[in-house]
Every structure is written in C-alpha cells, then in structure tokens.
Design a protein around this nucleic acid. Structure first.
Lengths: 208, 208
DNA sequence: GACCGTCCTGGACGATTGACCAAATTCTAC
DNA sequence: GTAGAATTTGGTCAATCGTCCAGGACGGTC
C-alpha cells in the first residue's frame, strides 16, 4: 500500500546521493569526489551510484545546481520584498554572515563555477541561474533610482562571491565591515536618498 | 663552462615543472593534476617530479604561490604610483580586461583559494600575500580620503576575484561596465573629488 | 503459487594514481 | 685520469579510479 515502497525508497536514495555529493564536493573538491566515497557515505553499494545517475559527473552537476538553485530562489523573492536597496543589501549581508567561506555551501558555489569552465552544460545552466538572479536584483535597483542598475547588480552578486572566497583565507571581512562599503553602491544619488536608506552605523574599533 | 651545467639544468627543470603545474591546475583542476601529467608536459620522466619536490601537493602549492605572488607584486607598486584612486581603479580594470575568467591565471587564483581551505600551510601563505596587497591598497585609499579605507580595499580585492569568477560563466561583465560602479567606492566624499578623479572614459582599445 | 519490474549488491575490468627506488647517466672536483 | 655528487631514467608497488554487469532481494499483480 501507500503508493509504492520500493520506488519511494529509490527516490530517497537518489536524494541522499545528491545531498552527499554536495557535501563531498565541498570537502574534497569537485574532481576528487569518487563513486565509492559517495556510495559509502550514502550507505549504499557502489553500483547504486551508476544506477541512479549516468555518471559521477552528472551527479555532481545535478547536486550543485540543486543547492545553488535553492539558495538563489530563496534569496530572490526575499530581495524583491525589500522596501529599499539598503534593506535588500541587509538581506545579502545576512547571507554573508551565514557563510564564512569554509562552509559547504560557500565552497560548493566556487567549486561549481570552476567546474563550469570544464563542463559546457553545467556552465549554461549555471549562467541561467545567475542571470535570473542578476535580472531580479537589477529590476529592484532600477525601481529605486540606483545608477547603473544592471552593472551594479552584477558587481554586487560577484562581490558577494568574492568576499566569501576571500573570507576562507581568514577572518577580517565581517559583514559589518563590508556593509557600509557596499551600501555606497546602492545609494540612489550623490546626495542623500529620498527614502530611509542610510548606511548601517559603524561599530567602533573594527576596521581601523 | 659558465659555472655549472648540471645544477643549472636541474634548476631549469624545476622551474619548468612549476610553470607546467600552474598550467595544469587551471586546465584540469587542483586535485586532478597528476605526477605523470606534470612529467609528460615538462618533458621529463615521472621520477623527476618527486626528486625536485617532496610531493605533488607541495609542487602545486609552490607553483600557485609563485604565480599569485608575481601578479600581486606587479600590481602593488603600480597601484602605489597611481596619482588618484580613480587611476588606481583604472589599473585594476586593466587587470580585469586581461583576465576573462577562463584564462590560466584567473582559474589558478580560484583553485588556490579552494585548495587553501584544505591545506593549512597554503592558507597561511596565501593569506599573507593577500593581506599585504590589501594593506597597500588601503594605505593608498587613506591618503586620498576615501571612507572606510580598509574595508573598501578588502571589498575591492574580493570584488575583482568575484567578477573574474562570474565572468567565467559567460560574457556580460566587461570592465567598461563595472568600472563606473566600482568607481563609486573610491570617491572621496559624497560631493565631487578635489583632485581629478572621474570615471575613466571608455575606449574600445586595450588595457594598461 | 508463478511472474515481473524496480532496486540493490558485490565484484570484475582495465586504467590510473602517488610514491618510491636501483641503476644509469652526466657533470664537478680533485 | 678517478672519486663523488647531482640529476635522470624507467619501472614497480599497492591502492584507487569510473564504469559496467550478472545475479539476488523485494513488493505488487496475476
């Protein structure tokens, strides 16, 4: 009864393999993830990997795209709900606080970017996701009279990834430090913003 | 004649291995570079690799640090010579034009960042290099009354790497697009700069 | 009961991996 | 000349790689 037991368990194993793949990409690096590693950590026999996926390469790509898609599709609508660019930036700073550059998600993003340079299909899929995010962010910036909205959106997205990347080398790039800097990018004009959009107050003693 | 032939040839082989290692890291990915690949492309027998280096891991780290050190030590002094932050930014935009995210140097940087999260020694060395660069850039920004100089320097450095990373996914992030955006970060105040510090006019030509 | 499709097991295949080494070679120093 | 150091060679070693496959296990349908 209950629909199907075998098929359900199969889907569950498939999901588990995807989750484990995302972990291992971050831990060992994209090209260092092996069939047997995946199987062992997922608690299945090695053959299961090639039963559910055509190749390890395909498994890694699907796993990475899944995680990245989730993050972007979670951040996108939240961004659209922000009343001001400053508020939207605050949301992105929240992302920065969650990811210190050494966590699985941060590393997965970077590993995926690199893998995309060696896998044309992955590159196209990834470009699609990032273009969608940039477009949404650019639309938000346009509505609030931020100059160079498309370029600013692209720079903001890239800066987030770059900051996460650099943070992996060590401390010293806290969200509270970079927020006032990035805030200058989303200030509507050279003068003060018409709506409430001030830079977050500096906490004393940090970056001096 | 001329001092030494054997030792010189040895050093030459060592240098060649380092150069080849940098190429292969970019082409195949850090963890996918093998002893025999290195030897074959360098035109030597496989055993030579472990004669000159204690391990492949050590060879890759030394190769990456060498290239990155060269780039930073070339950009650093040039940055110090810039008369205005806008000019300094122009130099960094030149770097952006040289590296489209798919070239060997761009990929090597990112691969090294990732490898550093799995190699404590490499992480420390890399952090030292990047801290030096940030400090130099921050000093330059401080002299020109740019607000949040340390944080701005860190964000600029990270943004460059992030932009290069995103550019690997496809076109649409030209230096001419991002320059006006980043320029807002190095504007001394909300009003116009006292010295000549306008966004660099865009020529279709080359970089510097 | 027999039958069938889905899922999984465990091992086989040839190729490749990092590391290592004895022997050959080449050069320097005496 | 000859001794000795430095460099290179070509191969071995156990381990691991991705992929594939014959067969077992399980649940649902006759």
């Amino acid at each position: 009864m209950a629909g199907s037991t075998a098929a359900d368990r199969g889907r569950e194993v498939r999901r588990r393999l995807l989750r484990v793949a995302a972990e291992l990409i971050a831990e060992r690096g994209w090209t260092a993830v092996s069939t047997r590693m995946l199987a062992e950590r997922a608690g299945v026999a090695p053959g299961v990997v090639h039963y559910h996926f055509s190749s390890v390469r395909a498994l890694l790509a699907e796993a990475a795209l899944g995680v990245i898609g989730d993050v972007v599709e979670q951040a996108g609508p939240a961004l659209a709900r922000a009343a001001t660019p400053g508020e939207a930036l605050g949301l992105m700073m929240g992302l920065l606080e969650d990811h210190d550059g050494r966590d699985a998600t941060s590393l997965l993003f970077t590993e995926a970017y690199l893998a995309a340079t060696r896998d044309e299909g992955l590159r196209r899929s990834l470009a699609e996701v990032m273009t969608g995010f940039r477009r949404r962010l650019a639309g938000h910036l346009t509505e609030h009279a931020v100059p160079f909205p498309e370029a600013t959106a692209a720079v903001l997205a890239a800066a987030i990834d770059g900051i996460v990347l650099h943070r992996a080398l060590g401390p010293g790039l806290e969200a509270s430090d970079v927020a006032p800097v990035l805030h200058r990018l989303v200030t509507p004009l050279d003068r003060h913003a018409p709506d409430d959009d001030r830079p977050p107050p500096r906490k004393a003693g940090e970056s001096a």
